[in-house]
Design a protein around this nucleic acid. Structure first.
Length: 509
RNA sequence: GCCCCGUUCGUCUAGGGGUUAGGACAGCAGAUUUUCAUUCUGUAAACAGGGGUUCGAUUCCCCUACGGGGUACCA
């Protein structure tokens, strides 16, 4: 077999916001495509009009763009295989269903949804599951059981029908999965899935196979939830005569809840305090808002990195990877088989790593909107200096405010516990004297202040802690924060004096 | 229920018939410092259980348990 050009697709259905697991699936597809110099395609699988959610498609595109995934073909950009929205490809599926009808691998079925449901209910009450398949199709209403003329009559009269695949009897169907190896299923376990719905649209199974073939997809990389229907897809390729062009399959392990069990789901995010969606999403009906990584302050590069490592690893001890590095190192055979629990703590750590990689200018850019919101007015230069001395202390941009608010607003109250521990009987006296020293300094820079304080300590026979702790309280309002001398330098002498005096007058002991 | 997939520290994972079972996050302890945090150093922590195969199994096979997925005219 000649080497096929690598072409992969990400094929979400626009039924709501893209789940973070979906982002990972897209990422793996992208990495694989780029690694092999292939194409990454976005196809929208909207064959279920009842579940269509307005805005979902835009959301998907925006989310993927945000994390830095770009498509070579797809909705929004077009390409040689356009259109890329299945609802716009409606007319092309019917012929393939008919070909299957022709060659005897599919048949018409006339059982109504109501009838099917009744049978399922009945079986269920007997603790059994009804499967429309090799064992049961003989007693159902379809072109296999009905006389040919009845079938024709029904068809001619416009009676609703579906087209079902005719699963073979007693045959081992083999799926060769790139991650799991050979997966074999007995065909009797499969059911005669509907391929073509009564509303004239194909189901996912038909559409996905037809489109992958027509779009010359070389590798189907998708979630593990598709593994059970992969044998069906293999059968379809075979019956459609495309066996030699069948893509290779890779079924990804699922993303699991961090606590307990089960697939990571919509509700987990807000319950456990981390987003499950890349972007914030407001439900069109319930107006319920689900948080997004972007809005929560995650850096896209960090999200990419942490997602890449949930189910895959390079086999080295390197933890931090840029997209380019991921592309270089990625390979399907290093993808894990088992599901991965999402670790919110590690996600924060990744964000911290990427945040401190940013320059002060970049952080200013990101931090600025928040300052505006707080009504802070300051110069870029000042803000950047502030950022430079607190940046190491945060995981998220919004935390910069928690670490730096006192650079913009003087403390109005003083942390009670800190006062109790750090504010001594003689603090006012010491600080008054220190403030006088400050006033006499010709220059007010970190180094000079440091020297002055040291001299002061020596003269007064005081320890660093006795003075600095109280001083910090006056400047910050609590006993936390970065290096004092750098802070004073930034704040300037006047503000420093003002804060010292205010604290002396305010803190009563 | 039935079918499919899986199971190495709390979590993400490396490894693989003979290893001190390695790393990262989180934890704990120490160091640094004017505080808090960062950082650095150290430390604790795992092969689900039972049978085989083998000189030897965490690694290969089987069973059990547990977990996950599927079982729609949804994708």
């Amino acid at each position: 077999m000649t080497e096929k050009r690598v072409r992969v697709r990400f094929a979400p259905s626009p039924t709501g916001p893209l789940h973070i697991g979906g982002v990972r699936t897209a990422l793996y597809n992208y990495l694989f495509a780029k690694k092999h110099g292939g194409d990454f395609i976005l196809r929208i699988e909207d064959t279920d009009q009842a579940r269509y959610v307005p805005g979902a498609e835009e959301y998907i595109f925006e989310a993927l763009t945000w994390v830095g995934l770009t498509f070579d073909e797809g909705v929004h950009i077009g390409g040689a295989c356009a259109p890329y929205r299945q609802s716009e490809r409606k007319s092309i599926y019917k012929q393939y269903a008919e070909a299957l009808l022709q060659n005897g691998h599919a048949y018409y079925a006339f059982d109504t949804p109501g009838e099917l449901e009744a049978i399922r209910k009945k079986q269920e009450s007997q603790k059994q599951t009804f499967q429309y398949g090799p064992l049961t199709r003989g007693s159902m209403k379809n072109s296999l059981t009905l006389p040919a003329e009845d079938v024709k009559k029904k068809l001619d009269s416009g009676e609703a029908f579906v087209i079902r695949i005719k699963i073979p009897d007693n045959e081992d169907v083999v799926v060769n999965d790139l991650i799991r190896g050979v997966v074999s299923v007995q065909s009797n376990q499969l059911d005669d899935k509907v391929l073509f719905k009564s509303n004239g649209l194909p189901t996912y199974h038909l559409a996905n196979v037809v489109d992958d073939y027509l779009m010359k997809i070389s590798h189907v990389i998708r979630g593990e939830e598709w593994l059970p229907s992969a044998p069906l897809h293999v059968l379809l390729y075979k019956y459609l005569g495309w066996e030699n062009d069948m893509p290779q399959f890779a079924h990804l392990p699922l993303l699991l809840k961090p606590d307990g069990n089960g697939k990571l789901s919509k509700r987990d995010g807000d319950r456990l305090g981390f987003p499950v969606f890349p972007l914030q999403w407001e439900d069109t009906v319930s107006k319920e808002v689900s948080s997004g990584y972007r809005e929560s302050g995650y850096i896209p590069e960090a999200v990419v990195n942490l997602l890449a490592f949930l189910g895959w690893n390079p086999g080295t001890e390197q933890e931090l990877f840029s997209m380019e590095e991921l592309i270089q190192s990625f390979s399907i055979d290093r993808i894990n088989k088992s599901g991965a629990k999402f670790d919110a703590e590690k996600a924060k750590w990744y964000n911290h790593r990427y945040l401190i990689k940013k320059t002060d200018e970049e952080l200013l850019e990101l931090f600025f909107p928040m300052l505006i919101k707080k009504g802070i007015c300051s110069t870029d230069d000042y803000i950047q200096k502030v950022i430079s001395i607190v940046r190491e202390r945060v995981n998220f941009v919004h935390e910069l405010w928690d670490q730096a608010h006192f650079f913009f607003i003087a403390p109005e109250s003083y942390d009670e516990k800190a006062v109790k521990e750090k504010w001594k009987e003689n603090s006012p006296a010491i600080l008054t004297e220190l403030a006088d020293r400050f006033k006499n300094l010709t220059e007010f820079t970190a180094g000079i202040i440091h020297n002055a304080v040291q001299e002061f300590l020596k003269e007064k026979q005081l320890g660093m802690g006795q003075v600095m702790n109280a001083l910090r309280l006056t400047i910050v309002g609590s006993s936390a924060g970065p290096d004092m001398f750098k802070m004073l330098d930034l704040l300037g002498m006047e503000e420093t004096i003002r804060r010292i005096e205010r604290a002396i007058n305010t803190i009563k002991k």
